[in-house]
């Protein structure tokens, strides 16, 4: 298998629908693909003790995070028959309702992409050192923990 280089998965701020749309369009030339699957993580306006989350400020141990993203990508290419795979995560502030993570997998056939996307989302949540500061409407904050 060819060596893939470590990419930077991070984007400053929210991931726009234009960026997502462009990513889909770029795959029109890859005609062995028969199925795409996309996961979009969106910042939820959680209500905690009567206060509502307004935004999440993301930070990361970027070197380690990009290495982990790379290991997760390699593991997914080993496990599933994928043509290509893209993972993006936000850094900095993302408002409620905006997209903070975009995972995109493509394969000749549909079964693989359903399994791959679930594997990827779970792995990212468990293994990538990304931290989220949940900022409330009244400017107080708490630190998000993945469950």
């Amino acid at each position: 298998m060819k060596e893939r280089k470590i990419k930077n998965a991070f984007r400053e701020g929210p991931i726009s629908s234009e960026f997502i749309g462009d990513s889909i369009a770029k795959h029109q030339s890859k005609t062995s693909i028969g199925a795409h699957n996309i996961f979009l993580g969106q910042v939820r306006a959680d209500e905690i003790d009567g206060k509502t989350v307004k935004a999440i400020q993301y930070s990361a141990y970027e070197d380690m995070a990009n290495e982990k993203f790379h290991e997760i990508r390699e593991a997914a290419f080993e496990k599933f028959n994928l043509t290509c795979m893209h993972i993006y995560h936000s850094l900095g502030e993302v408002q409620k309702g905006e997209i903070c993570m975009f995972i995109f997998v493509s394969s000749p056939r549909r079964k693989e992409v359903f399994k791959a996307i679930e594997f990827l989302v779970n792995e990212v949540k468990a293994k990538v050192p990304i931290f989220g500061k949940e900022v409330f409407e009244d400017a107080t904050h708490q630190w998000k923990v993945n469950t």
Binding site: Y58, Y61, D63, M101, V128, P129, I130, W143, V145, N146
Partner: peptide
């Protein structure tokens, strides 16, 4: 605790000059 971009246990020897303390992850 992470050393050389890997999670380590408290028994591990320090063999890298950069050590990171990582709170619970919140990606996604």
């Amino acid at each position: 605790v992470a050393q050389n971009n890997q999670i380590v246990t408290t028994d591990n020897r320090i063999d890298h000059s950069e050590i990171a303390l990582l709170p619970p992850f919140a990606g996604g």
